[in-house]
Computed example of a mutant assay.
Amino acid sequence: MGQLGKDPQHNTFSLWQMTSIITSTLIGVGILTLPRTTTEKMLEAGWLAPILGSIFAFFVIWLIAVLSRRFPGLTFIQYSPIVWGGHEHSRLGFWLSLPWILIFIGVLFVSTAITSRIFGEVVVTAVLQDTPLEVIIVSMFVLAVFLCLHELDTLARVNEILFPLILFPVLFIAFASFQKAEWNNILPLIRVPLKTAIMGSFETSYSFHGYEIMLIFFAFAHGDTGKVKAGFYGIGISVFVYTLIVLAGIVVFGYEELQKVTWPTLELVKTTQVPGLILERLESAFLAVWVAAVFTTVANGYYALIYSLRQLLKKGMLFQRIASIVLVIPLFFVAIRPQNIVEIFNVTTFLGYTTVWISVVSPLIHWLIMLYRDRGRRTEKRSDAHG
């Protein structure tokens, strides 16, 4: 990656770094509940849900990349006013784009808080049972703030280092769990109606939420083609991991049993034995890897949030550092607001629908407006030529 200059726009992420950021963001808390949520509607065919749901995610990441390629070096915060008002009506463009930008920032804020809360719930339930939930949440926030104190090159390098440390252990655990597989559990392959399968795969697409941060980070990618490649590689790797985890859960427990477990992936790890008994309690190793996965999800989302505010208010690095510390306070109160796990899952469902708005509707509307402006300019040029 290029050296950081006075202007952070001069940063460029390599293809590997962009792929690491996307994959590390997507693989997070959702992996613990995915076997249960996918089989709720699709039953034995739940393992197909991540594959079908990824079609939606691939389209979205392509759409975000197309917008970013049209405005190289600019983030969503910077090019949205240009789309709405053009260069000649910058003030109008700012006010028309402001609601879209604020919704984007608000979703990042709430999703970061809820992700941290789920992280705390799992850690307190499975490992540190006598540790207050608030301490676990604050610990994650402190790590995210520490990353926000640095420029973008630090974010890229952290994701680059943690990416293989997250990916390979998760793949190993998924493959190791097939030792106790009962392959009859996936039969019949498809017995749900087509409408139910579509709804199940659509809901699974929520598991890919997090790629909306690329509305910010795509601005710092190498070249135009790297953005699309990084997006497809990142989502492709996530799909592979998700499919393996869900398939393992189904063939080991069966879809009926998965509906009775709050954290099915964690239970799957507990039943898995490593050949040679190298690790007697595999869940401890899994949780260590999972902590790193959640950290990248929280930190990347929080960094995108703070950087968006920095660009919206046209401030510098000092503002970013102060804001990252100050915003932790309201973030903490939002994280602890849900009273129980049911309320937390209700919020995540709501966030899933809102993320669809941010990651699909917003880029699509911006893209259509851009096409309309281009068509108008071409018409004007033809008129001038004939005139």
Rank of each mutant, 00 (worst) to 15 (best):
R36W: 01
E212R: 09
E121A: 05
W263R: 12
S111E: 03
D153M: 07
L155R: 03
F168H: 07
G2D: 09
L43S: 02
G236L: 08
I136F: 02
R375A: 10
F141D: 00
L133F: 08
M140C: 06
I161H: 08
W47P: 03
I341F: 04
A248T: 01
Q3D: 13
L364G: 07
V334Q: 09
H10N: 15
E283C: 15
I114L: 13
I21A: 03
I245C: 02
A181W: 05
Q259T: 04
G85M: 09
I369R: 11
H150M: 05
I82A: 05
Y372H: 13
I118N: 03
P8W: 06
L371M: 10
I358M: 14
F141M: 07
F13G: 06
N159S: 10
A248L: 09
V289G: 12
V192E: 00
A181H: 07
V289A: 10
I173S: 06
V334F: 09
G254Y: 01
W290Q: 06
A248I: 03
Q78P: 11
G301F: 02
I77S: 02
G231K: 00
L368G: 12
P338N: 09
A57H: 06
I101K: 04
S324R: 13
W263C: 07
G234F: 04
D224Q: 10
N346E: 11
H209A: 13
G316C: 14
P338I: 10
I21F: 07
N340V: 11
W84Y: 13
T115V: 04
L52D: 00
A65L: 07
F141R: 00
G301W: 01
P169V: 07
A126F: 05
I336C: 01
H366I: 09
V170T: 06
T243Q: 01
R191S: 00
P72C: 07
P330K: 10
T349I: 12
M140G: 02
F350T: 14
T37M: 06
I322R: 15
V60D: 05
L305I: 06
I31V: 14
V347H: 01
I105R: 02
G73T: 08
Y303E: 04
L26W: 01
V326P: 05
W16Q: 10
V83Y: 02
Y206M: 14
G93M: 08
I173Q: 03
P99D: 11
I325D: 09
L165M: 09
S80P: 04
Y302T: 03
A288R: 12
V127N: 14
W100R: 08
G226R: 08
L34G: 00
V127M: 12
